[in-house]
Nucleic acid binder design. Structure first.
Ligand SMILES: Nc1ncnc2c1ncn2[C@@H]1O[C@H](COP(=O)(O)OP(=O)(O)OP(=O)(O)O)[C@@H](O)[C@H]1O
Length: 737
DNA sequence: GCAGCCTTAGTTTTT
DNA sequence: CTAAGGCTGC
């Protein structure tokens, strides 16, 4: 028997046992949606004789998938049951590994993350001699992604009468997609789009794959996009059993092409579906729920829904407005100490949730001062750390020789005399003769041997330093190729370390402190220990699985379970689906939540409101919401009012005096910054004014947009064209008004 | 042509 | 403040 109680109320029970095929569960936070999915899966396996491998369950994060898998496997008392549970991306990767060959996808494909995408786009821009300022890689990637997720194609669709700029972007997108194919690589969106194309490629394939999935279940349905919708429809097209679970009030991923319309689309596409509403909240106190509904009720365009709870009223939610961001951090740290000292709560019961990753820093500092253990969710993910990406790049080229992004990353890491010029030559020659990069290196080295040099002047006469570097790289490559075919992944990683002398080169730079070095070495050891798990798992392609899983995973804790009793720091987005007895929500201010970047659009602001709503509804027992009048963002102080979403609570908001006991140096620092800011604000900009910019030169102010604590100026510069600048930041001098 | 220093710009959310 | 890119000495 497990400790956890798996009781269900009547509505939940009904949802679990419903056998009519299409089922939609709409329910507020904490109403047991996730529990229903877990129990339904268990019910299907135990009482309906469905084999675990015939179930397809999509969750929003890897973490949620792991938790659900554990829950189910406890209930059915079976490990490694073959249950297909994961994010859409990882489930699609699984399908593509198995069936991809039908649409010419090799099962050893590499998954490109944002970093790799950017790197690929940049290579294309350089080849095309295009400026990365004008052709912003982020924007291009974003456009390509939207196109895939919303328009369901990896071919960019021409706008009506495209401008020259747009046409160029389309061209880049086209080249990008070609490069991916050449590299035998798929970006995150490709995992979905190719899976979709695979299912559409032939009736037989569709039936073959879909007949396997007797039941399709999808959690967090309000945050799925059109592509995911279509995939789940196709996957459930044979057995026609599909259960979706969602809460429109918790849709917070529209920026990633999620569309809440999927809820109504589901209802329209399945006229015979059953709708179950869950209204009882089991998570939070009445006080917390009251605050939550006050926040969400003020939202526009919302169907009113009520949630209620039998839980007690509990402690009042605390609202505080601090002087400084530091005060806020100190207060949180102090309060946490009170909880742990009095043993009212353990560290793992406590979470701090914020809008942007950058906000964690100030909190971390406060926690460090008080020696409070914490773990950060998201932020700089394990897989994204430089040392990990370097090592993985060495593994990637072994698994997939076509992976030019990985080659480019490590051909000169550690530095071995192969610079920008040599690399672009290599790429050019390889491209022209249709060689793989590694083949081209081999060829160029041969052309440059002493013997061959006497025979024929080579196209590229390589300098000694570079030539030695290339030879060294080739030797490492060959040795690793040998290692990977004979040894485990873990051993191969050790070989990478040894052959590249990584610790004494990359990790031994002056700029790096001992602590930084140690932490990097720790990370690499962690990677080795994860590799060991894949080595002993007994799968057909351990290296492929290892690399795929790592790129689809948010953090180490997702692949490796370790017990820590530390408090959790997380963004509000990553907190989705989680719950904690005690929750702190710092930085609930204008400019942060709603975030500056969202203020231009009404829909975006409403999404920000829902982000706060999600945060509030994570708390079970006690909730602290706070803001700071001033805080440092990117080195300069910014002042802000409490968030507009807190307007209903202004009466209960406490203004806390500055308790900062930091040394004077820091105080002076803040004071100094303040002075500069005030000076800036006294400079009065008006439209039509002539100004001079440090870098951009002379220009005229075209328009001024008021921001919460600043002005955004649109300026036409003589030389540089239109630019948008923040009044407080821009080094501007007024010439004449 | 390369490597490391120094300047500069830019500040959301993630599979 | 930090990461990325430009610049300059080797
Ligand atoms: N019938 C029930 N009886 C007692 N506790 C329940 C019941 N159903 C759910 N719970 C508890 O309520 C809490 C919330 O459940 P769950 O996480 O499934 O909600 P959810 O609807 O998925 O929430 P959210 O949408 O906010 O992520 C959990 O702690 C769960 O164990």
């Amino acid at each position: 028997m497990s400790i956890e109680n798996f009781d269900l109320n009547l509505a939940q029970q009904e949802a679990v046992e419903y056998e009519g095929g299409q089922l939609m569960i709409l329910a507020g936070p904490g109403s047991g949606k996730t529990r229903v999915i877990a129990n339904k899966i268990t019910h299907l396996i135990q009482n309906k004789n469905i084999h675990p491998s015939n179930i397809f369950a999509a969750t929003f994060t890897k973490k949620a998938a792991n938790e659900m898998q554990e829950r189910v496997e406890v209930l059915i008392q079976k490990k490694r049951s073959g249950l297909n549970i994961g994010t859409f991306h990882s489930l699609c990767a699984l399908i593509l590994r198995k069936y991809g060959k039908h649409i010419n996808i090799n099962n050893n494909f590499t998954i490109y993350d944002g970093d790799d995408q950017r790197s690929l786009i940049k290579t294309i821009l350089i080849e095309e001699n295009l400026n990365t300022q004008i052709y912003n890689p982020y924007k291009i990637i974003n456009k390509i992604s939207k196109n895939k997720n919303k328009k369901l194609t990896n071919q960019l669709i021409e706008e009506f009468q495209p401008s020259a700029y747009e046409r160029k972007i389309n061209e880049i997108a086209y080249k990008y997609q070609n490069s991916l194919t050449k590299n035998n690589a798929l970006d995150f969106d490709d995992l979905l789009i190719y899976c979709y194309q695979l299912l559409l490629s032939s009736e037989n394939i569709r039936k073959d794959i879909s007949s396997k999935y007797h039941h399709v279940l999808i959690d967090e349905f309000q945050d799925t996009n059109l592509l995911q919708y279509e995939i789940s429809k196709l996957l459930s097209s044979v057995h026609k059993n599909i259960t979706v679970v969602g809460d429109p009030d918790q849709s917070i991923y529209s920026w990633r092409s999620a569309q809440i319309e999927n809820l109504t689309k589901f209802q329209n596409d399945h006229p015979l579906h059953k709708l179950v509403l869950l209204e009882q909240n089991y998570r939070s106190t009445k006080s917390i729920l009251e605050v939550a509904s006050n926040i969400i009720q003020n939202s526009t365009d919302r169907i009113q829904r009520e949630i209620w709870t039998n839980n007690k009223i509990g402690d009042a939610v605390e609202f505080q407005n601090f002087e400084q961001g530091e005060d806020e951090g100190d207060y949180i740290a102090k309060t946490i100490i009170d909880y742990t000292k009095s043993q009212k709560a353990e560290p793992k019961d406590i979470a701090i949730m914020y809008r942007t990753n950058a906000q964690s820093r100030i909190i971390e500092e406060a926690l460090l001062v008080k020696n409070i253990q914490y773990k950060i969710v998201g932020g700089l993910r394990f897989y994204e750390r430089k040392e990990i990406k370097d090592i993985l790049a060495y593994l990637r080229i072994l698994q997939n020789k076509n992976d030019s992004v990985a080659f480019t990353r490590i051909i000169n890491t550690p530095t071995r005399g192969i610079g920008k010029e040599s690399l672009s030559r290599l790429i050019k020659y390889a491209d022209e003769s249709n060689h793989l990069l590694i083949e081209e290196i081999r060829l160029q080295i041969t052309n440059n041997t002493a013997e061959n040099l006497t025979k024929k002047e080579p196209l590229w006469k390589i300098r000694t330093k570079t030539l030695n570097g290339l030879k060294e790289f080739l030797n490492i490559y060959d040795a690793l190729q040998q290692s990977v075919s004979e040894q485990s992944i873990a051993q191969t990683i050790e070989s990478v370390m040894k052959l590249t002398n990584y610790k004494n080169t990359v990790l031994n730079q002056d700029a790096m402190t001992i602590e930084q070095q140690n932490s990097k070495i720790e990370n690499i050891n962690e990677l080795i220990s994860i590799a060991q798990e894949y080595d002993t798992k007994g799968s057909d392609e351990p290296l492929v699985e290892f690399l795929h899983d790592l790129s689809l995973v948010a953090d180490v804790s997702d692949v490796k379970e370790e017990e820590t009793n530390a408090i959790t720091l997380t963004t509000l987005h990553s907190a989705k689906g989680l719950e904690f007895p005690i929750v702190f929500l710092p930085g609930v201010e204008e400019g942060l939540l709603p975030h500056m970047m969202s203020l231009d659009s009404k829909d975006d602001i409403e999404e920000e409101r829902r982000i706060l709503y999600v945060g509030v509804t994570r708390a079970k027992i006690k909730l602290y919401i706070s803001s700071a009048k001033n805080r440092f963002i990117a080195g300069s102080s910014r002042s802000a009012k409490p968030s507009r979403f807190l307007d209903p609570f202004t009466k209960t908001m406490k203004s806390s005096p500055s308790m900062s006991h930091k040394d004077n140096y820091h105080k002076n620092f803040i004071a100094e910054r303040k002075k500069i800011l005030i000076q800036k604000r006294e400079e009065h900009f008006i439209s039509g004014m002539k100004v001079n910019h440090n870098i951009f030169g002379a220009g005229i102010i075209i328009s001024i947009e008021e921001r919460s604590d600043d002005q955004q100026l649109t300026i036409a510069f003589k030389e540089k064209g239109l630019k948008k600048l923040l009044a407080s930041h821009a080094p501007l001098e007024i010439i004449s008004g």
